[in-house]
Amino acid sequence: MIFAVAMGAVLVTMGLALVRAAKGPTIFDRILALNMFGTKTVLLIAVMGFLTGRPDYLDLALVYALMNFIGVIGVLRFSKYGHFADPDRKDVA
């Protein structure tokens, strides 16, 4: 029961993050919302593992945390440079 309530709250938070991602107004607001959405997804997966009695879900939660972090850094780099190449290296770009 408590798990379901916590899951509901996390889902509502994710919804609020989506609203901010849709409203913007700057790209950074959207990335911030995306980052928060990702963190909440990690929590959602973890709580869901307990709700369904399958703690194996935690492995997925960790993988999602990794992907979320790398994804945010990647999007930031892309929005700054417009490509993923190392700005200091001209031989690979």
């Binding site: 709250a9 996390v10 509502v12 938070t13 911030l32 919302a33 909440k40």
Partner: peptide
């Protein structure tokens, strides 16, 4: 607290 953070974001 997660919910409050979401409200703050809005």
């Amino acid at each position: 607290f997660a919910l409050i953070g979401g409200i703050g974001l809005i």
